[in-house]
């Protein structure tokens, strides 16, 4: 209290207060924006999920919508498909990206720049654009079938888009094509920071290339692998653009994802915003749970 009378001290104190206040001005727009466009809708979605009805006539029904989820075959299909994409596609892509990055990190390799750019190139396409291209490439008389037939790998065309099993494969191949190079770039730049002497020491100790990969490369890249797998998991849980434009969720609902089901519930079928919001909360809960598990399993605990 007595220090407050000291003029210099008071000046620095008010200066600090003033600076703190200006600091809030720098961030206020973002705080308002994120509250309005993320947190407020989040609360609204929860309130909506407790209501039911068509269009704008909604009434509170408690947790009925959540019960409905368990008896909704389309939801169960969409959920199973989404998890299937997640379990097959994310590991496949991460392993492929790791292999590419390790091969491209070899300093004696020629045409490295070409390979790197080529494999990364799919990441610059818009999701809709490449989805439409894939739809045509994988058509019944599309180039993929033409190629496989001419190489005698298959004897009759594969129904890439109209068979429930192959349609899922097509979606997985498409996403893998689009995102492998993108993930590879993260691993490549992480590898460039790795101390080369570690590999030399390992070589002297007689470690094979395989052993080096599993006992040096993988542990060193763990943080970045964790980061990319969380990003990919969140992305896959929200999968929409590709499915919408390659198969529209078909045949039947065999490639339907949760995001697409939410879209259909709100804008394609008779709008049922309450139930759609309920389904959307499932996505949120899945994102939170899966990110948490990944942190726990792979993350450093420090």
């Amino acid at each position: 209290m007595s220090q407050a009378s000291s003029p210099t001290h008071q000046r620095t104190f008010t200066q600090r207060l003033r600076k703190n206040y200006i600091g809030w001005l720098f961030i206020i727009l973002s705080v308002l924006g994120i509250s309005l466009f993320y947190f407020y809708p989040m609360v609204q979605a929860f309130l909506l999920s407790l209501q039911s009805g068509m269009g704008s006539t909604l009434e509170y029904v408690g947790f009925d919508n959540y019960v409905r989820l368990f008896n909704d075959p389309t939801f169960i299909t969409a959920l199973t498909n989404t998890i299937l994409y997640l379990l097959v596609q994310v590991p496949l892509m991460i392993v492929l990206a790791l292999v590419f990055s390790v091969l491209l990190n070899d300093p004696t390799l020629k045409f490295k720049g070409f390979f790197r750019t080529a494999i990364f190139l799919p990441a610059v396409t818009s999701l809709v654009a490449y989805a439409v291209i894939f739809k045509y490439l994988f058509g019944n008389d599309g180039l993929v079938n033409d190629f496989l037939l001419s190489m005698n790998i298959i004897s009759s065309p594969i129904a890439w888009l109209s068979d429930p099993f192959w349609a899922k494969i097509t979606i997985i191949l498409a996403i893998t094509w689009r995102w492998t190079g993108y993930n590879m770039i993260f691993y490549l730049s992480a590898l460039q920071n790795v101390d080369k002497s570690m590999y030399e020491a390992a070589k002297i100790d007689g470690a094979s290339a395989m052993q080096q990969f599993f006992f040096i490369t993988i542990p060193l890249l763990k943080p970045i692998i964790l980061f990319t797998s969380i990003v990919s998991t969140i992305g896959t849980l929200q999968l929409f653009d590709e499915v919408m434009n390659i198969t529209s969720g078909g045949p039947g609902n065999s490639t339907m994802t949760i995001s697409m089901y939410i879209y259909n519930l709100s804008f394609e079928y008779t709008p049922d915003f309450g139930y759609a919001a309920t389904v959307s909360y499932v996505v949120l809960i899945l994102v939170v749970i899966l990110s948490f598990i990944q942190f726990r399993v792979a993350g450093d605990r420090d």
Binding site: F37, Y38, I234, S259, I262, S280, Y281, L284, V287, V288
Partner: peptide, 13 residues
Amino acid sequence: SMMIPFAAIMIPL
């Protein structure tokens, strides 16, 4: 908020 999937807030928006 980075964890919030767009699908989850699309309808309220």
